[in-house]
């Protein structure tokens, strides 16, 4: 296994995380671990899709912090707005990544002049995030595709701060709402059975007066499920929003099972969301969620060039 160290004070192999990633050969022959020592790393980080099997380990979310401040309303050198997907602090594009013990923070702030500001953009398959804090406001975590597992992570934001089309399990995570808003905005494709699944999480907020929805469908078939999750008073009794489109109520897949706490009172939940039965809940095993039975037989009509 190749080991690389990074620290701000020059006593390691590199001073920035991106330099360390750039030093790794594409399609590494062995697993690479990058140790990111205590410090604040002001940088945008890209792990390209041809560098899989990396492990990046910090010294703890309070000690190792990667941060940047791009935001959707920012104007670039061509006088164009950044838009959402150029804002991330951290792009995790390769498969089989393990990211541990650090914070990724978008420090742009919030408001109409800021807009979306992503902390983590993940599109790699089979990625693990363990004891990672994701700090931001609008659109903190974007899972574009693939499967990711978040264990004992802290994710904060206010509007749609967990969004995208990936299949993601959040296990024992704290999901913290800073203000009024929506926790999830899944765009799960119709053919995928699972989108965002929360197991044994805590939903907390900065103020008991906040009004927060569990989610709204960014695309019609968005899927989200909260299981054995503790919800504070900020969760609105109706639970879910249709994103101003009643048609979404027919397709969105929003589920709950055995949640607890003052925000988990199910009597007033919107009728188009569902409480799982005990036997249905047993389908929500990590193995099941992450098993994709996907065959692909390309069907191309031969071109007759004559």
């Amino acid at each position: 296994m190749q080991k690389i160290t990074v620290s701000k004070n020059g006593d390691s192999d590199y001073k920035s995380l991106q330099e360390a990633i750039d030093s790794i050969r594409v399609h590494p022959l062995e697993h690479v671990t990058i140790f990111l020592k205590e410090g604040i790393y002001e940088e945008k980080v890209i792990i390209p899709d041809n560098k899989p099997d990396l492990r990046i380990v910090g010294e703890g979310p309070r000690k190792t912090i990667i941060r940047f401040g791009d935001y959707a309303e920012k104007i670039d050198e061509n006088n164009k707005k950044y838009g959402t997907f150029r804002t991330p602090v951290f792009y995790a594009q390769s498969d089989n990544l393990i990211i541990e013990n650090l914070t990724i923070e978008n420090i742009a702030g919030f408001g109409p002049d800021i807009g979306q500001a992503i902390a983590l953009y993940v599109s790699g398959d089979k990625c693990i995030f363990n004891n990672v804090s994701l700090l931001g406001n609008q659109d903190t975590l974007y899972s574009a595709k693939g499967r990711q597992y978040f264990y004992k992570c802290y994710i904060e934001g206010h509007v749609d701060f967990i969004f995208g089309s990936g299949t993601v399990v959040f296990d024992h995570c704290t999901i913290h709402s800073l203000r009024d808003g929506f926790i999830t905005a899944p765009s799960t494709p119709k053919e995928n059975k699972f989108g965002f699944v929360f197991l044994d999480c805590n939903l907390t907020s900065s103020s008991p007066n906040n009004i927060v929805y569990l989610g709204r469908p960014w695309r019609p078939y968005g899927h989200a499920a909260f299981i054995r999750t503790w919800m504070d008073t900020h969760i609105i009794p109706t639970g879910w929003d249709n994103w101003d489109n009643v048609e979404n109520e027919k397709t969105a897949r929003f589920f709950e099972y055995c949640n607890k706490g003052p925000g988990a009172i199910i009597e007033k939940r919107v009728k188009w969301s569902h409480q799982l039965t005990t036997s249905e809940s047993l389908e929500y095993t990590v193995e099941n969620i992450f098993t994709i039975k996907d065959e692909w037989v390309p069907n191309v009509k031969a071109q007759n060039n004559n």
Binding site: D200, Y257, C258, T278, S281, L282, Y284, T285
Partner: peptide, 12 residues
């Protein structure tokens, strides 16, 4: 109460 989870109380 058999549940998808580790060493913890379910309460379901």
């Amino acid at each position: 109460d058999i549940f998808e989870g580790r060493h913890r109380l379910s309460g379901c």
